[in-house]
Design a binder for these strands. Structure first.
Lengths: 142, 142
DNA sequence: TCTCGCAAAGTCAGAGAAGGTCAAAAACAT
DNA sequence: ATGTTTTTGACCTTCTCTGACTTTGCGAGA
């Protein structure tokens, strides 16, 4: 197991235990793991990036810290938007575009998008398609 | 015995032993077999291709690896069984059980199961539910 | 209050460790 | 003879790790 992965796993465990937000002392953590402090920065910039849904805040000086937050809200916000945009009726063509957007925003995986598309094309009216999509979207809110 | 085939056999054996997924260090493997490292790439691109049912992932740099995954066709078989078992009509209750089985057999993730369940509960007749489930199942065949 | 020193975190470039690519030569097949 | 597959090695790109140097914040003492 490579050092970077070990540190990343360590941090992920802490995040899971703490429920999505931790505050670490860079030097302490480096000492605990046995690496140079800047390695922590490397792990954070290479693994805990904004586009993977993490937010990093920090402060230098005495009593400094690094705060790592696992963000989930932007996906939920997008799902809300999705539900509103679908409305009460949606055509098969528009549904395909909307599902593509869900995937494009990282809210669903390509496989999940394929499942949803298959489901959306299995109903016979625009109203039922809208209801189906909204039902699915609701289950995805975390 | 040609070199390429020897390497391919070696990898196949490892895959069989490991149950369908291995992670190799290209240089190590090349050293063990006694070939130039790029030969490993050649074997992989010429023998372990997607259309033969393999998935390749890799990472460069220190601690780099090549991961070879043999797609599980028993999942496809299970999907076939699923499609037959669903038949032309299925109640909401039975659908829930069937979807649970899909998840239990590792054919879909829990999240995907939730999506499918939401879709299945969005239609109003047993016939439409069956059609929807079968449509989804078909898209999952790999 | 101001300043200075220490205690953090941040940055960056370099070395090293992997895997990837590609073209040319060699071997093989038809 | 011609086309395809193998084999090789030189060179490329990406990722990791480290340490020196920089920046920032806090708090104590003048």
């Amino acid at each position: 197991m490579i050092l970077t992965d070990e540190i990343a796993r360590f941090i992920e465990n802490m995040l899971a235990e703490a429920g999505g937000c931790i505050e670490i002392c860079r030097n302490d953590l480096a000492g605990k793991i046995g690496c140079v402090p800047s390695q922590i920065n490397y792990v954070i910039t290479s693994r805990f990036t904004p586009d993977r849904g993490y937010v990093i805040e920090s402060r230098r000086g005495g009593g400094g810290y690094i705060r790592i937050i696992k963000k989930q809200f932007h996906k939920n916000e997008y799902l809300m938007h999705f539900i509103q945009a679908v409305g009460n009726e949606i055509s098969a063509e528009n549904a395909a575009v909307f599902i593509g957007n869900l995937e494009g925003h990282g809210v669903v995986t390509p496989r999940e998008a394929a499942i949803i598309a298959a489901a959306a094309s299995s109903v016979d009216t625009n109203a039922k398609r809208a209801a189906l999509l909204k039902n699915i979207a609701v289950t995805l809110i975390s």
